[in-house]
Design a protein around this nucleic acid. Sequence first.
DNA 1: CAACTTAGTTAACAGTTTTTACTAATCAGC
DNA 2: GCTGATTAGTAAAAACTGTTAACTAAGTTG
Lengths: 396, 396
Amino acid sequence: MPNSFTPQVAGDLNYLKSLNRSTILSTVRRSPGLSRADIALQTGLTKATVGSVVQALSEGGWLREGELHSRGGGRPGRALYLDGDRHYMLGAEVGVKGLRLVACNLVGEILASLHQEVSPTTPEATATRLAELLVQLRQDPALGGRSCLGLGVSVPGPVSPRAPILRLAPNLGWTDIDFLALLREQPDLPGGVWLLDNEANAAAFGEFYFFDGVPPESIAYISADIGIGCGVVSGEHFPVVPRGYQGLVGEIGHTVIQPGGAFCHCGNRGCAETLVSGWALREALNVEPEASLSAAVQARADEEAVQALIQRAGEALGLLMLNLHHTLNPSMLILGGSLMRLEARLIEPALAYFHDHQNDLLRKSQSVPIKIIEDSTFTAARGAAAQVMARAAIEV
Amino acid sequence: MPNSFTPQVAGDLNYLKSLNRSTILSTVRRSPGLSRADIALQTGLTKATVGSVVQALSEGGWLREGELHSRGGGRPGRALYLDGDRHYMLGAEVGVKGLRLVACNLVGEILASLHQEVSPTTPEATATRLAELLVQLRQDPALGGRSCLGLGVSVPGPVSPRAPILRLAPNLGWTDIDFLALLREQPDLPGGVWLLDNEANAAAFGEFYFFDGVPPESIAYISADIGIGCGVVSGEHFPVVPRGYQGLVGEIGHTVIQPGGAFCHCGNRGCAETLVSGWALREALNVEPEASLSAAVQARADEEAVQALIQRAGEALGLLMLNLHHTLNPSMLILGGSLMRLEARLIEPALAYFHDHQNDLLRKSQSVPIKIIEDSTFTAARGAAAQVMARAAIEV
DNA sequence: CAACTTAGTTAACAGTTTTTACTAATCAGC
DNA sequence: GCTGATTAGTAAAAACTGTTAACTAAGTTG
């Protein structure tokens, strides 16, 4: 059964080696502390192969040896971990409200970060500013002695699945921008893998790749911000983000859940975004773009109309979660984005709606775990960095 | 980039060989008539490798040589085709209205078929009856001299992604049925690959795998029958059907598109199925289960209420297609199922809604091709057979 | 402290694709 | 009709992969 590491066309011995190296790396990523013997058992490879691959990966700065741990009799195994001290990846989010940058290591720890809360203007000016910030970030002493694997950039709109091109960013007014090409014209940027992806996809990838705990089978990450997007990830050793033919997978903010409802900026009516999204709530509450939405809601929390508005938004979010479940059926739902700052006011009605409207199909199954990310400031940037690591790992 | 043929864990030389054999087979399936040199060019393998693999595949009854075709100067290449004369696959659909069986060859041609239009009763009795029909089908002289690669069975409900178990078939009243195990108790059945899958998934796979013409990048097959289901397929050489954590991918009939709308048999309200589905229309029109829905609609075509009902159903279908597009974004939509017998009455409003409610994201792209299958009697059965072939091809 | 058990390494091995050289078959031009 | 150029396909040697089998290393247990 092929997955996301099957070669584009056919495989040679190089591909085979790369495949097994990546599988071993991923096995350690998902279960830190395994010994060579454990890895051989889990992957089906022989001890000999695992031994030689682990040696190569250690020399390359990907793995490090840890403590011994004995299990009953016999020689104790040497624990293996991803080496967090020798490489790092850069991740950046070009968001509607500003630029956010991180540098993180192989275990997903953020070593250094920057953010500038000023809305981007033109693509060119944004690329210039981002390049400056990247140079600044790379001078952070926390990165000393490490080598850079590459750069991932996330953007607020669908990216073409066949080329790293931003197709449309409605909230920036950008269309068909080859942002990486603009960035490449800037000085002093690192080499390595360069990637561009949608914000929700990048965030979803990062939450899946660097999942803290027993990794889920698949996730859907709902990004509730100015607009509503969604990224999906699945795949044990080689996580795959389905993008669809035009990069529109997960554009759930523009699924219609109220036919004939309010007009949406997309040109349609009754989209989910007209009920639950940063722009819809700001519009309904007359909140200026610079002001804080959550603060405005907090301030007017006594007004019944405001309560009803947020309640309806939460229910719409719950309905979206249900529909998503019947269409993509992930094993875990993750909610993130700045709308999470509305906290229980929004989240409780969403969860209540989700649980109260389960149908027979869902009731038969165990309930879907839902994880909420309160602060997703660097989620997308870190996710973009994670994508760089995943790509670099198969290109070692 | 891995896909659906990446091994479960890691790969050895056997896996590599199997991968390349499958890739070559798939290359010929997608472009019949290629020469060994063409294949080498397309796959990146060397002529030597392609030559030896093609020889093995020819001896195994998978490929046959065709005519010579010269392109300009030089020795002409020998055209290669899938061999339709030496193997066949069995496919069966356990449907709400009866059993349908096909035997088809490697190019997707139906060599023999059977159908029995009697609703299944118990799983045991159905397995017995299906086994009898399979024995009868295999005696068809059109299958003479061929060997059987295996059997695929499609069922009207979600199948667990981790085991071939039918989880729930609401319209049959079946729950958690290991149908293949029941079938295995029957005498005189073939060996080889045995598979169980959801009806919409099987149909989608078949339409993708045996696509007539230039193969699309991905498809969503909407099965509009008693209920509404949907199967998704993508992947060039190794088509993948996403199933989700509980096999609920594509259960779009139970996405809510009218909050607070009519009650659905699933226990929820406002599901798409309450507006467009065989059961909803039959209920609204008081059509007996044995009678023909399309005939009833035809007979009462003058009534305004009937026209409005079908119009609303078509619009709901169009809305489902739009939402699907914003969630899964396939490169082609295929509509099938018995509801297609309502023809223009249903299809025209669906297409009109779909085209009239495109938003900016979609308008930027070229429009999605939509293919309509008027007669999908054997679509799911043939699709199940296609899945057998795909599996057998990687296990050769 | 000897026997046992498990972890990890080493060298010979089997099997894969590639490389290189070759043969086969057709076309173009004289 | 022949020669040379060109492309298709094959054969044997080479390079590289993971496996096998034997070994060493390092603990625990009696």
